[in-house]
Structure formats: structure tokens, C-alpha cells
Design a protein around this nucleic acid. Structure first.
Lengths: 209, 209
DNA sequence: CGAGCAATCTGAGCGACTCTTAGATCGGTG
DNA sequence: CACCGATCTAAGAGTCGCTCAGATTGCTCG
């Protein structure tokens, strides 16, 4: 159970655990507001500390966002591991994993908002975050490995990226409100099922091609 | 050929066409920098006007971004229309459309960066942009309509969203540098083909299920 | 147990940014 | 050619990111 990345020593201080309080304030804010509106100063106000206090826990605003993203990847890995370890057929497992991803994006919108931010693309500066992201992909590849054991490694990785793209693309479009009430488009729930089903097909096709 | 949304009267003035100059400066900036780093003040400096001048052409920063996004959708619709009108089998047409999308995202990265921004999710405030976005989806649905003429309308729209998700997800992950040098993952070009192929399969499956 | 250290927080402040407003300046129209 | 409206400038109010000197606190270790 790897939940928080690092609990600072023994928790207590003036403000018990400011680092966590800031992250929680950020999560709360991002529930229904885009990342651009998130302000370090406001987080400090929420936590009832001075405007400079956050900078003792995060080098700058980007590192705070990166910490939140890392937490998001870790939580996803934790819940996805459960799905991956379930006694199911590889095909069902894959569909469940797809549904789990979309559910995660819906329930943890605040985290999801920062998990693929182009401001955090720097691999060296945000190494720990990218390590967690790579682990998340690795988990997806692992399930695909089970589902199509006869395919070549390259093809498996290729399918993993395509599948990831579908899930992320759908979650992203939905989160950004692009899919809202487009005439003729089915309910979003049905779309979740369709996305999951298309992932399963993605793998079945690979076995015999 | 609907290229710019609205040419201000007759072009000329002090600064010939500041509106266009600002958009071009924005495009230039976004070529290799995330949206968060884009500054109205800097655009004004680039265009050699005072910091307040841009606000006579755009109500605020968001409307400038929305104008850029609208332009992006319009350009995409223009180039996609060509693909959709080509004399090809529906299946090939679909694959070409998929490749065209990914090529568009790669070549027009600056526009693509703002085309699905959550800051611009408000449908009323950015009505013209969302209208253009809806038209883009409509075009995709149109090609799908040809490709699976026997399927129900709901199913077609469903496949359109899934296909769109795959394309947007892949373009987005690539643009944000998430796919860069992950070990075991094939070259990005091969992935483009795989994405296009998966789109074609998406439709073929729908015909007989 | 107590002195010192390191981590944490405050408060003030610098530079930059968004957006507003009053007024100058220009282009086109009647 | 006088005027009007569109465009631009200059200045400024309010906010934000981030820094820094100094105060405060918990922890460690002699």
C-alpha cells in the first residue's frame, strides 16, 4: 500500500502536515476547475499559512503539480494491480482494466487533470513522476502480455499504446467537456462499455494477425 | 475555403492587422512551449504594440485561445473534407482520415494544444469554437456513416467517439511527451499506422455485430 | 536536561502578469 | 473636410510566483 509518497518525518508541526494539507487543498480546488486556475497563494490561504510557506515543501508550483500527478499514478497502480491480480480470463481482465481506468479518471478528476500535463513533460526534472507513469504503462502491458502470449513483444507494446490512447483520449475528451450533449451520441455510460469492448477486440485481433 | 474567422474590415491600420499578428505570435510561441507559458504581454511585445492593445481584439486571454482553437478546427475541417471527398473505399477513407488527424496534430501542434483545453469548456462563452468542434466530429461521423451503412445511428455515433478518442489520445500523449523513448515501444510512425488500422477494424466489427 | 541545530513558518517585497481606463491618434464616411 | 468610431498608448490597480531575512518550533545529542 504505497499511498503518500513521503510522510515528512513524524507528521506534526505548527500545521501538523502542511504538505498534505496543500495537496488536499489542490485536489479540492481541481474538482471542478482547470489547472490554470490553481494558485499557490490560494492553497496557502486554504491551509491558513503565509504565502511563502508552501515553498518549503515544493520548490515551485510545477513541483506541487508533479507531486499530485505522482500520487495519481500511484493510486492508479494500486487499484489496477487489484484488477490485474483477479482470477479472470485475460480478455475479461482487460475489459475490467479499461473500465477501471475510466472510473479512475471520473472519480479522481483532480489527479487526472495533472497526470498528463505538458508542463510536466521534462523527464529529468520530474523523474519520479515519469517513473510512476512508466510503471502504469508497464502494468497495462503486463495484462496485454497475458492476453496475447503468442504475439511479438513489439506488437504487444504497440497494442498497449493504442489501448492507452483510447482510454486516455476518451477520459480526456469527457473531462474537458467535449463530449457533453452532442446530438446523436449515446449516453456516456454506454460509451464506457464500448471503449472497454474495443480494447478487448484490440487484443483478440492481434492473436491471429 | 473558410480560413480566418473574420478579417477585421479591410486589414490596414497602424499595425496593418494586429489580430492576425497576435495569433501568429501565439502560434509561433506554442510551437515548443505549453499553453501555460503563453502571455498576452509577450505577444504584444512580439507584435511591437503596447501591452493593452491586444484587448481591443480579444476580450481576454481565454478568448484569444478560443480564437486560435476555432482556427484549428476550421483548418482541420478543411483538410479533412478533402480526404472525405476522395474516391476511395470507405475503409481506406477512414484510415486516411486517421492518418490525416495524426499528421494534423503533429504539424499544427500550436493549434492542437488549444483545441481541447478545459479552460475553454464553457459552451456558451465559446460558442463559435464549440460549433466548429461539433462540425469536426460531424465530419468523422459522416465517413463512418459511409463505412457502416447498415448499423444503427447510435452505434455509428458510438464508434465515432471511440475512434476520435483513440486519435486524440494518441496525439495528446505524443504531444505531451508521454510516449517518448519508453523501452520496448515501437517507433512512433509504426504506431500511427497501428492507430489507423485499429480505426478501420473498429468499423468492420460494427457491421457484423 | 538543556543547548544547539535544522526544519518550518512569517512578512515584506520584487518583477511579471491580467485587465481597466482616460485620452491620443488614425482611417473612413457623409 | 469635419467628424465619428475604431485602434492604440500610457498608466495603474490588483494578483501571482518566488525569494529572503529573521522568528519560531521540534528534535537530537552531549
Amino acid at each position: 500500500m504505497t499511498r503518500p509518497l513521503k510522510v515528512p518525518a513524524k507528521a506534526g508541526y505548527h500545521h501538523a502536515n502542511l504538505r498534505r494539507a496543500l495537496l488536499d487543498a489542490a485536489i479540492n480546488h481541481l474538482r471542478d476547475a482547470p489547472v490554470a486556475t490553481l494558485t499557490v497563494k490560494q492553497l496557502a490561504r486554504d491551509a491558513k499559512v503565509s504565502p511563502g510557506a508552501p515553498y518549503h515543501h515544493f520548490k515551485d508550483r510545477q513541483e506541487l503539480l508533479a507531486a499530485l500527478a505522482t500520487e495519481g499514478f500511484e493510486r492508479w497502480i494500486a487499484s489496477a494491480s487489484t484488477v490485474a491480480a483477479a482470477p479472470e480470463t485475460p480478455s475479461n481482465k482487460l475489459a475490467n482494466l479499461a473500465r477501471a481506468w475510466l472510473a479512475f479518471a471520473a472519480e479522481h478528476t483532480p489527479h487526472y487533470r495533472v497526470m498528463f500535463l505538458s508542463e510536466l513533460a521534462d523527464r529529468q526534472r520530474f523523474a519520479t513522476m515519469h517513473a510512476a507513469a512508466a510503471q502504469a504503462l508497464e502494468l497495462l502491458v503486463g495484462v496485454l502480455r497475458e492476453a496475447m502470449p503468442d504475439a511479438a513483444d513489439g506488437r504487444r507494446a504497440e497494442r498497449a499504446v493504442i489501448a492507452w490512447s483510447t482510454l486516455h483520449g476518451f477520459a480526456s475528451l469527457r473531462m474537458n467537456g467535449v463530449l457533453g450533449n452532442i446530438p446523436g451520441v449515446p449516453e456516456l455510460e454506454a460509451l464506457e462499455d464500448a471503449a472497454a469492448a474495443s480494447m478487448a477486440r484490440l487484443v483478440l485481433d492481434a492473436a491471429d494477425s
